[in-house]
Design a protein around this nucleic acid. Sequence first.
RNA 1: GCCGACGUAGCUCAGUGGUAGAGCAGCGGUUUCGUAAACCGCUGGCCGGGAGUUCGAAUCUCCCCGUCGGCUCCA
Length: 590
Amino acid sequence: MAGRSHTIGPTNMAENGIDLETLRHSAAHLMAAAVCELWPGAEYGIGPSIEDGFYYDFLLPEGQRFTDEDLPQIEARMREIASRRPEYLRQELSRQQALAEFGRREQRFKVELIERIPEGEVISCYRTGDFFDLCRGPHVHDASEIPAFKLLHPAGAYWHGDETQPMLQRVYGTAWNSQPELDLYLERLEQARLRDHRKLGRELDLFSISEELGPGLVLWHPYGATVRTVIEDYWRQAHRRAGYQLVYTPHLAREKLWETSGHLGYFADEMFGAMEVEGDRYRVKPMSCPFHILIYKSRARSYRELPLRLAELASVYRYQRSGTLHGLLRVRGFTQDDAHIFCQPEQVEEELARVLRLVREMNARFGFYELEVDLSTKPIKAVGSDELWEQAESALTRVLLAEELEYKLNPGEGAFYGPKVDIHIRDAMGRRWQCATVQFDFNEPERFGLEYVGADGQPHRPVMIHRVLLGALERFFAVLLEHYAGALPLWLSPVQLQVISVSDDQLDYAHQVALRLEQAGFRTEVPDRPGDRMGAKIRDSELAKVPYAAIVGRKEVEANNVNLRNNRNNEQTPISVEDLIARLRSESGS
RNA sequence: GCCGACGUAGCUCAGUGGUAGAGCAGCGGUUUCGUAAACCGCUGGCCGGGAGUUCGAAUCUCCCCGUCGGCUCCA
């Protein structure tokens, strides 16, 4: 899950005990040993340790599949094997020996793996009881050294992750150095479940996805739409400040446009089908770049007006396979905070630096301070000259260094049309999310024949940079919700304050107070369901994660003030409405 | 799309072949109350959809749709 590579537990550091990677890898072997005993003739693929656990892939005889009920049985067999304390015995084999050994055992996946091992590399295997596996190691001494493990869920997984390959049966598990650590991890999984944006979205009445509407299409309810509007307003303001010009473009275009851009060639699988209009074919847009390019091309451009930064909150539609949809994190219709920067080659570094600064500023505003950067470079199949790539990659590297952003290099992982920088944020649970991405594009300026007139009076080709900062509003909203567990900061809360009357007698006063707050620009509600007691209203207010309640009873009416209740820490303060407004202003940064 | 699981009231869930249930929410009434739930009553379901087995299906079988956990891909 690129957008959701969850790390739930503490990092994989062994505080006391065995290195967790070793431990988990050994647990994977133990599980494979158990599976091979229970399903004789099972073939095994790979079984690595992963963040928070391990898995192992199997091909069971006669196309059998694991079900949830199988897991306790496998786990019991693992414990039984572990109680015999089999040692993990290392053995180095020659290529021929290894091929013969796994050939004899009819382990075709292992044979394939051995064939892929480069000449001259040591081929090592590990034996655990009757289980024999190709493996680099290292491992624990014996199976009793795995103090705490649990199998989590079965899943299907293609061999080498390739759909054309057979689908293997994967079992995920987790292993820790002690039972309390395992318990803590399971508890964190439960915590993550509680702050799942899909659950919060329903409970807080923020959004829904309706089967009648269609999978992967989002309905933003009034509260959710309010948050989105706040995000959008801030975004527009920040972009205008940063020198962007805002544009709007349609949701449809002639299919021909996507031929020109090249999207039909390599992106057709993700585009919704064509519709016929007056003999012409139209497509719903999966991205906005061609539209922004057409704005650029609508007249001759001078070097004097570059960089031209066109930005749009653009709703796009992409056909995602049904199995990949996931709440707001993976949808078919979403809104990118898209922008395209057209500039002269020598302006590239400055533009990149500005984008990165804007990424920092915006993420910080939303409460994300930790950024992790991936730089992906030229893949084997690519357009554009080596020289262009070289320039762009070195510009990216220089800017990352200058901005003091540490980055991870992913050689060959760039898009075919240009190198890219992906920026990940870490949320409150330590999970990593990709939101912002900056990509060079050597393809489209060429295809659309973009030009500007330079100081020399000659036509030149501009450099084009695609970038999103929040990514998609849907996904970003989901990340925000999970980050704050639904308790959004004051400036983002759909309802910032509720005025709660002690009895119905103070309702008039409550409405007067609310009116003053609304006039001061705060989103305010007065709960007035007849018969509800103050306690019930406070409870509802807390459950709705409204940051503040202003309690008004007889005392407050008399003193012409309110009793401010911080719903998040139950702090109570008598305060005048003027002071309350000042306080809310300062907290919300407005 | 593929593998597995699941789908009962708006929500959370009970109900394994014999008349569809609970709590919360909603609605009506009574209560006017000081920091997380007042009380009484009522409404609400083609048991995801379709086909089949059966005297009889929420329950068993098959197909479809959707959701969830993965694989792949990505904002």
